[in-house]
């Protein structure tokens, strides 16, 4: 109970440790796993934990966005992984040992530099008293949306010319990103398109029409050959009459 009390008293820290451990731990999972599907699964968990960290830092909207888009995007990776590994054995792609060593050395030194930088600036490592911090409703969705249309609500108090309304927003980047997305959509569709058009796709016809086409061919053949089939088509109501005749 005492532990619980401590954990609650420092709930921000507790959750930070939890999410950070998950994010990094599953990141290691991505790195060390050999199976593509497992890698994707670990990636999902890592990204999900990162979203948790975003929530903790007060960026609710970005956290939800992370879950929805990023994790949803990973879904596609996962599916590709499944598609490519379910049939063929692509798992056996071992990295050469020298690559591992080199990557570890470079990565380790990079991490050292980054950590040094992270803890280097005094302003950044200034401890904050977060004991009373709660996940407040930080009302950021509307300002974010407005900022994307070029209106900065949060900097209204600032007097600088650069942050005047209509000038400090992100309208231009927003439009660029939108166009970018459109281009990417078309480009991806173009790259992954069907390379060889077959008759079926040429024809723009559904399968039903294809079968109809096939049937017509066969009916032609049928007419050529002689099959003794009586097509009366009419109601057979008068069967007894015809027998009488």
């Amino acid at each position: 109970m005492n532990l619980l009390a401590v954990a609650w008293e420092y709930w921000h820290q507790s959750f930070f440790i939890l999410f950070a451990a998950c994010a990094i731990g599953f990141g290691f999972g991505v790195l060390l796993s050999k199976n593509v599907v497992r890698m994707a699964f670990y990636l999902v968990l890592s990204l999900g934990s990162t979203a948790g960290l975003f929530f903790l830092a007060g960026a609710e909207f970005v956290g939800a966005m992370q879950l929805m888009i990023y994790v949803g995007g990973t879904l596609v990776l996962l599916i590709f992984g499944v598609m490519l590994t379910a049939q063929k054995d692509f798992i056996n792609m071992d990295t050469h040992t020298q690559d591992w060593i080199l990557a570890t050395i470079v990565g380790g030194s990079l991490l050292m530099v980054l950590l040094f930088a992270a803890f280097g600036a005094e302003d950044w490592s200034k401890p904050q008293d977060l004991t009373d911090a709660k996940i407040e409703s930080t009302k950021e969705a509307t300002p974010l949306g407005l900022a994307l249309t070029g209106i900065r609500v949060d900097t209204l108090g600032d007097s600088g010319d650069a942050v005047k309304q209509g000038k400090s927003g992100y309208l231009m980047p927003f439009i660029i990103v939108s166009v970018h997305l459109l281009v990417v959509l078309i480009g991806a569709a173009y790259m992954a398109r069907t390379k060889k058009l077959s008759r079926a796709t040429d024809d723009k016809s559904s399968r039903a029409k294809l079968m109809l086409f096939k049937m017509e061919q066969e009916t032609e053949q049928l007419e050529e050959e002689t099959y003794v089939v009586t097509h009366r088509g009419q109601s057979a109501l008068n069967r007894t009459d015809s027998q009488d005749e």
Partner: peptide, 14 residues
């Protein structure tokens, strides 16, 4: 291959 039912797909699969 020349059967009208043959439809080429974008991903080569087995």
């Amino acid at each position: 291959i020349d059967d009208p039912r043959v439809i080429e797909f974008d991903v080569r699969t087995d």
